[in-house]
Simulated assay, not measured.
Amino acid sequence: MNKFFLTSKIKNDIEEVEAFLINYLDFPHQNLKESSLHTLKAGGKRIRPAFVLLAGSLFKYEDKEKLISLAAAVELIHMASLIHDDIIDNSVTRRGRPTVRALWGNDFSLYAGGYLFAKAIQLINPKENPRIAEILANTSVEMAKGELAQIQSFFDIDQTVRDYFYRIKRKTALLIAASCEIGALACNASKNEIKAIKKYGYNLGMAFQIQDDILDIESTSMELGKPAGNDLAQGIITLPTIYALQKKNTDSLELKKSIVNRFTSGSYDINKALEIISNSTAMDDARRISFKYMQKAKDQLEYLPKGMIRKNMDQLANYIVERNY
């Protein structure tokens, strides 16, 4: 994540989360330790822990140790979901590095992801934080539903924008919303404040995933850290592709044929499909939707305390839809 607009306090807190995770992932089982640290050190934007920390700072947290552990827990849940995603997608690279499944195999990766989920729940300490544990448990259930819906929709050219929103809400937006919510909850924010910051996180999460899906179409492999068009090649139909498929022209028909035939000519078909989507108005249509969600997120800021942290949250919303990686 581009941290240039964050306060030094938030930057330092993110670094503390990173150090906490390195220490926490020092598991007795050597392969679990190495695979977990490999996933962590692959980088990433640390968006989810940043939201926990921003929410906590907004409401002037008193228990820093608790907030750091909660931020670490949401990152562990995210890491676990990435490991499982890579199994389903047969991915060999992520962020420019080999995936856990590429190095340790699918069977090990399945259990490694499950282990990280369990360690995240332990970190929350459900007995002391029952509501926070409930939020993250429910979010994890919905994330699984989103992944199952994605699996069932591979190469399905008839899926709708509504189907897509169902998936990304569960796979991405709900964990970002939960990150904001638990950060505020841990600091005893009011019900209305918790509601507002949760909506902020949800809408920004939707914008974040749409932007990711735009980048999968138009960015290079070097920029993405994985093959360009990787989602499309795996049969994952995202918003730009759905919009392109809805066009009434010969390009749309060619795109439908390539997807139904599962890109039988390999990279040629995939590159041609990417070209069709990129050259249509589908990309601008998707950007408009991403921007609308970003604006909905920013609308919630007026219900939150004024100050530098709120300004950071406004700038973060802009970054989400303007980033190119």
Rank of each mutant, 00 (worst) to 15 (best):
L116F: 05
F165P: 00
A118C: 10
C187N: 15
P126S: 10
A120T: 09
E181A: 12
N129S: 01
Y202N: 09
L136C: 13
Y164F: 05
N188C: 05
G146A: 01
I157G: 02
M206P: 00
T160Q: 04
I176P: 02
Y164R: 03
K119Y: 05
T160S: 14
A189C: 11
I214L: 06
S190T: 15
K195C: 09
S140V: 12
Y166T: 08
R162S: 15
L175D: 05
K198M: 12
K171C: 01
V161H: 00
A207D: 01
K198Y: 14
Y166H: 09
K169G: 08
A118R: 11
L215M: 00
A207M: 04
A189L: 11
A173L: 07
I135K: 15
P130I: 07
T139R: 12
M143L: 14
D163M: 02
T139Y: 10
I194A: 13
A186Y: 03
V141S: 08
D212F: 10
I121P: 05
N188E: 11
I182D: 02
E181S: 14
Q150N: 04
Q150E: 14
Y111T: 14
Y200P: 04
E193T: 07
I135S: 11
E193G: 12
F154Y: 13
F155L: 08
V161A: 04
T172N: 10
L175T: 06
K119R: 15
E193C: 06
Q122N: 15
I121D: 12
S190F: 12
R162T: 13
L136P: 06
A133L: 06
A177W: 06
N138G: 15
S140D: 07
Y166K: 09
Q209G: 10
D163R: 01
A178W: 03
E181G: 04
D156Y: 01
I168H: 04
A207N: 02
F165A: 00
G205N: 03
S190N: 14
A120I: 06
K195A: 15
K195Q: 15
G201M: 08
S179L: 12
I135Q: 10
Y200M: 06
L116I: 06
M143C: 07
L148Q: 13
A207Q: 02
D156Q: 03
K171P: 00
Y164D: 01
P130N: 04
Y202S: 07
A173I: 05
K127G: 02
G146K: 01
A112C: 14
Q150A: 06
F155C: 05
L148S: 12
Y164E: 01
N125H: 11
Y111C: 12
L215R: 00
K199A: 14
F117M: 13
Y115Q: 05
S153K: 12
D158E: 15
A178G: 03
S179Q: 10
K127C: 04
K119D: 03
K171F: 01
